[in-house]
């Protein structure tokens, strides 16, 4: 009886999740009338705008990961080591981006950093890129912080630090050479989540008018029929690849840790 219900839930869920994927794949192959072909993919990959926007978003994603690591790792480490009482505050702040919609945050950016403000970031392309980068780091903050904090919880941060200090290591060396490698698995899982979020992000990029992959996909969707389905398949494959890599790396990291 229980097993029947369970199988029912699993099969219904699997149908719901598989049908759109199959539908998209099938649709993406229908560009040539009467037969299946890869024309839609050929058309997408040949589009210079595809390459430009995809490249832009990949670069932004990598920079977001870098910025996220720089902000989150030292903070999470320092809070665990010296300021445990601040932890609830920091956790609350890192969860805010899940509560405040991204569109509200970016609206604030536009108003706060416009050309007539003290910090006119939106005035130049470089400035706007920087603003978008910070926006992405904000979006990724909850995932990055959770991942790193969980990673740190498996270490005895205090003993590690004191041992390193007794050997004469400075702060930069402790964080860079000792803490970071030890939480690398956690950092990587946070990094891939960040990557998956940034690569297709639409709202912030569209409102800040940056040539990112998300707005490009939206534009294509509004004007073409079959290419969007091909893009969706590519995007899904990219997300899936990210998750696969994340699992592989965290598994390798845990294997290495148990081997040590």
């Amino acid at each position: 009886m229980k097993r029947l219900w369970s199988w029912g839930a699993i099969i219904a869920g699997a149908l719901y999740f598989l049908l759109p994927l199959i539908g998209t794949l099938e649709f993406s192959l229908r560009m040539r009338r009467g037969e299946y072909s890869l024309d839609a993919y050929r058309s997408v990959l040949a589009d210079p705008a595809f390459r430009a926007t995809f490249g832009y978003s990949v670069a932004m994603a990598l920079l977001t990961i870098l910025l996220g690591v720089l902000i989150v790792v030292p903070t999470a480490y320092w809070v665990r080591l010296r300021l445990p009482r601040l932890r609830p505050v920091i956790e609350f702040i890192t969860l805010l981006p899940l509560v405040i919609p991204a569109i509200v945050v970016v609206f604030g950016y536009i108003r706060l950093y416009n050309t007539s403000s003290l910090l006119p970031l939106t005035g130049s392309a470089t400035g706007t890129n920087l603003l978008l980068l910070c926006g992405y780091a904000t979006l990724a903050l909850p995932y990055m912080y959770r991942a790193v904090d969980t990673g740190l919880s498996t270490l005895d941060v205090r003993s590690l630090t004191e041992a390193a200090q007794s050997l004469g290591a400075g702060w930069v060396r402790i964080i860079g050479n000792l803490i970071l490698p030890n939480v690398m698995g956690a950092v990587m899982s946070g990094a891939f989540l960040s990557f998956a979020i940034v690569i297709g992000e639409f709202t912030m990029a569209a409102l800040l008018n940056r040539p990112a992959f998300g707005p490009y996909m939206q534009l294509l969707g509004a004007n073409r029929a079959y290419e969007p389905a091909a893009l969706a398949v590519i995007a899904f494959a990219a997300t899936w690849g990210c998750m696969g890599l994340m699992q592989l790396i965290s598994r390798l990291a845990s294997v290495r840790r148990t081997a040590r």
């Binding site: 759109p20 539908g23 998300g214 995007a235 997300t239």
Partner: peptide
């Protein structure tokens, strides 16, 4: 859970 946004819309247009 990360497959939100624009591609998801494409997927459902292609399906439903």
């Amino acid at each position: 859970s990360n497959f939100a946004g624009v591609p998801l819309a494409f997927a459902f247009i292609a399906t439903l």
